[in-house]
Computed example of a mutant assay.
Amino acid sequence: MSTTVPSSELTASAPAESADITEAGTGPAAPRTASWGADPYANALRTGRGPLFLRRSDGWLLPLDVERWCSDAGSADLSALHRCEGPVLDIGCGPGRLVAELTSLGHRALGIDVSEAAVARTRGLGGAALLRSVFDPLPGEGRWGTLLLLDGNIGIGGDPAALLARAADLLGVGGLLIAETAPVDVDERVRVRLDDGRGGLPGESSPGAVCGAAAEPFPWARIGTPALLRHARACGWRTADQWGAEGRTFVSLRRPVRERSARTSSQSAESANSTPVISSQLPK
Rank of each mutant, 00 (worst) to 15 (best):
R198G: 12
R198I: 06
G199H: 01
G199P: 03
G200E: 02
G200S: 04
G200P: 00
G200K: 06
L201R: 08
P202K: 11
E204L: 12
S205Q: 12
S205M: 14
S206F: 05
P207G: 03
A209E: 08
A209Y: 05
V210Q: 03
C211L: 15
A213L: 15
A213P: 13
A215P: 02
A215L: 10
P217S: 08
F218P: 01
P219F: 03
W220C: 01
W220G: 00
A221C: 09
A221Q: 01
A221K: 03
R222F: 14
R222H: 12
R222K: 13
I223V: 15
I223C: 02
I223G: 00
I223M: 07
G224T: 11
T225A: 08
A227T: 10
A227M: 11
L228P: 01
L228T: 04
L229P: 04
L229K: 05
L229M: 11
R230T: 15
R230W: 10
R230L: 14
H231F: 07
H231V: 11
A232M: 05
A232E: 00
A234F: 05
A234I: 11
A234D: 14
C235W: 11
C235L: 15
C235V: 12
C235E: 15
G236M: 01
G236I: 05
W237T: 01
W237Y: 13
W237E: 03
W237A: 00
W237I: 08
R238A: 14
T239W: 03
T239Y: 03
A240F: 08
A240M: 11
A240P: 03
D241E: 15
Q242W: 10
Q242Y: 11
Q242P: 05
Q242F: 09
Q242E: 15
